[in-house]
């Protein structure tokens, strides 16, 4: 509620500056102009939104699957941990402009390379949060499971995964917030659709209002993703509240 108020006040101030200050609309269009562009170009922007949302969602799902697999494997095996830990950290250092052309060269201009770039960006916060969470259980709880002769698999399923979930969800929320920017970067490198692509084209064509409209949709997409993750967290972690 209060966030909506902040946005409203900010938009009002922005509108006022544009109307009174004589800012060049090519540099900063007023919110009403952005809203107009949103409406006029709704067909184009809607298609782009769908493309980008698909890339982001696909990338997140892939990152969750691979991140969970890697975190659990690193947790269960010291050899795997020693082998993968530096690579997991290193994966964060690969700049998107370096990897994206390579992926596009191999996989073409479709959604696949963008999904992989999003997954690459989201993978790290997910894997690290889950990996740390798996080591979090209380020593007394571990002792209890051990005294019951729980197998490694049972300890993982009954104790470690549930107690890792709060951290894993924090990782998921971070990943969701950065996923959108990952998709935009990937589209900039090579794409013929999507909001990031639309943004770039609108910039070339000096359609600043449309570029801002695309940005507004990216903003909304990030917030919607975050809200969905937070809702899933509240459902899954009712015990922790």
């Amino acid at each position: 509620m209060s966030a909506a108020l902040v946005v409203l006040v900010a938009l009002g101030a922005w509108e006022l500056v544009c109307r009174l200050g004589g800012v060049d609309p090519l540099i900063l269009p007023a919110p009403t102009e952005v809203a107009e562009a949103l409406w006029v170009d709704r067909g184009l922007l809607g298609e782009d939104l769908l493309v980008t949302a698909t890339e982001v969602f696909g990338g997140l799902v892939l990152a969750v699957a691979v991140g969970a697999g890697v975190a659990v494997a690193m947790h269960l095996s010291d050899a795997v941990r020693r082998a993968l830990h530096p690579l997991v950290i290193g994966s964060q250092a690969i700049p998107v402009p370096v990897i994206a052309p390579l992926l596009i060269f191999v996989l073409g201009f479709g959604a696949a390379p963008k999904i992989i770039v999003v997954a690459l960006v989201c993978f790290f916060p997910l894997a690290i949060a889950l990996f740390d969470g798996l080591r979090a259980p209380d020593p007394d709880q571990r002792k209890l499971l051990r005294s019951l002769d729980a197998t490694r698999w049972q300890t993982l399923r009954i104790l470690e995964v549930p107690s890792a979930l709060p951290r894993a969800f924090t990782g998921l929320k971070v990943a969701a917030s950065v996923s959108v920017i990952g998709a935009v970067f990937a589209e900039w490198i090579g794409s013929d659709n999507g909001l990031g692509h639309g943004l770039l084209i609108a910039g070339f064509q000096l359609q600043t209002a449309r570029a801002f409209a695309a940005t507004a949709l990216l903003f909304a997409l990030a917030i919607a993703l975050y809200a969905a993750c937070a809702a899933a967290e509240r459902r899954a972690l009712r015990w922790a509240q």
């Binding site: 209380d138 007394d140 709880q141 002792k143 209890l144 499971l145 019951l148 002769d149 729980a150 049972q154 009954i158 104790l159 549930p162 107690s163 979930l165 015990w239 922790a240």
Partner: peptide
Amino acid sequence: DALLPWLTAEDNAGLALHVG
């Protein structure tokens, strides 16, 4: 007590049986 906070009381009480 080392009860697992995500399990209900009855699931906690039955934990040894479940692990067994």
